[in-house]
Write a protein that binds this DNA or RNA. Sequence first.
DNA 1: TCTATGTGAATGAACATTCATTCATGCGTG
DNA 2: CACGCATGAATGAATGTTCATTCACATAGA
Lengths: 213, 213
Amino acid sequence: MTIETPQHQATFARSASEQDERMAAILVSVRDAFIEKGFDGASMQDLARAAGMSVGNFYRYFPSKSAIVAAIVGMDLREVEAEFATIATSPDPLGTLRTILGQHIDGTCAGDCALFAEITAAALRKAEIGGIVGKLEAEIHSYLVAVFALITGRTHEDAARRYGGHAGLVMMMIKANGMRRPTGSKAETDLNEMILRTIDRTLDEIANDAVKV
Amino acid sequence: MTIETPQHQATFARSASEQDERMAAILVSVRDAFIEKGFDGASMQDLARAAGMSVGNFYRYFPSKSAIVAAIVGMDLREVEAEFATIATSPDPLGTLRTILGQHIDGTCAGDCALFAEITAAALRKAEIGGIVGKLEAEIHSYLVAVFALITGRTHEDAARRYGGHAGLVMMMIKANGMRRPTGSKAETDLNEMILRTIDRTLDEIANDAVKV
DNA sequence: TCTATGTGAATGAACATTCATTCATGCGTG
DNA sequence: CACGCATGAATGAATGTTCATTCACATAGA
């Protein structure tokens, strides 16, 4: 079983967009393998099998495990960018931000949480991955600050000075929430509610700090 | 180089407390190896070397990696228990709790954070470790609720119902904070401050909810 | 001597990485 | 159109390494 482009087997020399699609499909499969076995736990043969291809061919796509993580993180970043684009162009940026954050908290998050935890752990150990993750987080932080600037009518610099901590807190909560083991207990829903409340308050604090018109 | 008890080579047939000390010393060394290489990344020979003993002998102490994690978590639990004992017997439980939580946030945390991240990730993957960690977290949660009950003059059940989410939030923030990569940037101190503020507010909310006398 | 404590070589499985090879297609030539 | 060749895509066996786990053996207090 091989991963195939929609119209089977596609052409031979692949176009750039076909390659992108291919890459994305591979990353999705590989992600599952990482979730199941962990960064060090997943062998290259595991990953190749998950991607539906031979080991040798897999090495044509990724020269190392770190490269895979970099690719996955890059894909995540593109998703986040899309979300922030939605927020920025929305008639009600704050409301849209709240909605999207709420979805991230409530979302079953399936395996993404596990991957999050896995990558976080690896980032603390391998400098290479630490750098990649650090860049991702810095970019998300900057996007958040941009939204805060938009909401309050402040410059990006001013917003960064005032709300940098707020942005960090929101990110931390989303991240930490994602790394919880789902238990289905009352404690879980209690905490969920508490997180949402805390995020709401944090955003309120910013909204109430908008420059007067 | 071998790890030795203070008076070299110790006696032969060891007393129970000597064994405990030995075990603790081994765990401390092994912890470092886990921090450096990760759960899957650290091999049993790595761990044995870190503990300053032969592979074969190491297996006499721990039959598996999971057993090591269980032992480490058990040690951590005993530390946490000691902290909560201090809080519970303090003349000002709330103040003492604030102080201890503050220390956990400010603490350089050295490698403990990395180990935290590592164990969290492993807990999501290996059911065995998930169970151990889940128990640890449940116990800490219960200790926190007990302190909240003490502070407000409520029963444990009532406190659990009212403040279960609060306890979860505090734990989550301590945990998430511990897993951050130290950057030394302004964003880091901003977030630190924000976390402390959020914890303070959470505790205030509980303190203000004490039963009237 | 007996038993708790310890050693480190040995074993076989799994691992990352490489490589000789095959496959399938596009393309130029006749 | 038919033929053969160049080339990107894919294969999976081979290589040397590391791993978890076991085992035969050593040492030293009791």
